[in-house]
Amino acid sequence: MSLLMPDFGLFFWMMLSFGIVVFILVKFGFPAILQMIEKRRSYIEESLLEAENARKELEEIKTEAKKIQDEAFLNRKKILDETTEIKNALIKEAKEKAFIEAEKIMEEAKKQIRYEKMMALQEIKQQVAEISIAVSEKLLQSKLNDKPAQMEIINRMLEKMDIGKFGN
């Protein structure tokens, strides 16, 4: 029966030592350990969350990069197209200009030619007249001495010859 009766002496020592154990461990022992364990857990949780966030961010950045790349590609294409267009336009314009210029030059040249031709004709006329005169002179020297009267006759005759026929 003594087994089931709490002994006072032992009860006293148990109260004392268990009380001290509880006091020390509750005050200084376990809180420190539990605090660190909890801290570590929250640290791990945070780290995991951060890693997850970083992963997401990376994903976002990747999509962003892809987007930018695509945009750049499009832009390049656009710029290329534009350049080609401008090039073509420029070439066309240049051609047109060149054509107009050429036209102008041709016109100029034609004018010049016409002028030259006129001048040449004039000269030819002159020369023809002179030659005619000379011929006539030689021809008429013998017959005619009245030069002015002869000249008049010749001029009249030349005009009748219609110089315009040589104009082209």
């Binding site: 001290i20 154990v21 020390i24 461990l25 200084f28 022992g29 420190a32 350990i33 660190m36």
Partner: peptide, 17 residues
């Protein structure tokens, strides 16, 4: 027990997490 737990607590205080 006190020595045991306090030494463990000491490790936790020293090394942190």
């Amino acid at each position: 027990l006190i020595i045991l737990i306090m030494s463990i607590a000491h490790y936790y205080k020293k090394d942190g997490i």
